[in-house]
């Protein structure tokens, strides 16, 4: 009842063990519900992608086919966005995609925790991506990587456009992280709110109890939408990573 009444309660990161495990630089580290879900997600994804391929059958089984499909999906995405030389980042993009996808889908289990509904997690992932983009860009082009901010345009527009490009680059980690975080947060909040309606109407008694069927159907519909969003946001995160890597590799001359 309390959970139904406070839709934000599901995003609370709670220690599962009261005592902190240890401290890093004065910050205590707890084993939280989020940590548990991250472990489940990681182990499930690892087992799925390794066990499914354990037979390496020429004619794949259903699970092997799914593993191969997810791999080829990401590889195709990376290849089309960043070209052949982008494929060396496949393990990174594949891990990002699988981690976000599994986190989103495990979050759909009622009563579990959505890892990606935490800005700390999504921002850390986005910072990782942008950090790698910057490192790769400077490693490949040296100081010429800064030409990324100078688009091809009439000379009198260059200062303004460079400023805009620079701001756009700086907002990338924010947009990348907030997009995923806000989508998951909004979806799960909506589910909790409508779930609260069902409980409240049901508890009200009389004709209202009968009416509680309406938000119930709505929840089912939103649930389906959320499954789509869960996949879509993982896809968007991965494809944007590919696009940013492409810019680091080829500046503006590719695509």
């Amino acid at each position: 009842m309390a959970m139904a009444l406070n839709p934000m309660e599901q995003f609370e990161v709670k220690p599962l063990i009261e005592q902190p495990l240890f401290a890093i630089a004065g910050h205590p580290i707890y084993f939280t519900n989020q940590a548990l879900l991250m472990l489940i997600v990681t182990v499930a994804a690892s087992l799925f992608l390794t066990l499914a391929m354990s037979r390496r059958a020429l004619v794949p089984s259903r699970t092997q086919s799914m593993a191969e499909m997810s791999y080829e999906f990401v590889a195709g995405m990376l290849n089309s966005a960043a070209g052949e030389d982008g494929l060396k980042f496949l393990p990174l993009v594949f891990t990002l995609f699988i981690f976000v996808l599994f986190s989103n889908f495990f979050g759909m289990i009622p009563g579990s925790f959505t890892v990606t509904s935490q800005i700390a997690v999504t921002f850390a992932l986005a910072a990782l991506v942008i950090g790698i983009v910057i490192v790769v860009g400077f490693a490949k082009h040296g100081i010429g990587f800064l030409m990324l901010f100078v688009p091809k345009a009439p000379w009198y527009l260059i200062p303004l456009l460079t400023l805009i490009e620079f701001i756009s680059f700086c907002t990338r980690p924010i947009s990348l992280s907030v997009r995923l975080f806000a989508n998951m947060l909004a979806g799960h909040t909506m589910l909790a709110v409508f779930g609260g309606f069902v409980v409240m109407l049901g508890a009200a008694g009389g004709i209202l109890s009968v009416l509680s069927i309406a938000p119930m159907f709505l929840i089912v519909a939103i649930m389906l939408l959320e499954f789509l969003v869960a996949f879509l946001q993982a896809y968007v995160f991965a494809i944007l990573t590919c696009i940013y890597l492409n810019e680091a590799l080829h500046l503006h001359d590719h695509h």
Binding site: V13, P15, I24, H27, P28, I29, Y30, T32, Q34, A35, M38, L39, V41, T42, A45, S46, L49, T50, P91, L92, F94, T95, I98, F99, Q118, A120, V121, A124, L125
Partner: peptide, 18 residues
């Protein structure tokens, strides 16, 4: 801090496995 810690551990593990 807990979030970053567990994210680093699990993500690194998943990355190495994949």
């Amino acid at each position: 801090p807990s979030q970053f810690f567990w994210l680093a551990i699990t993500f690194a593990f998943l990355f190495v496995v994949l």
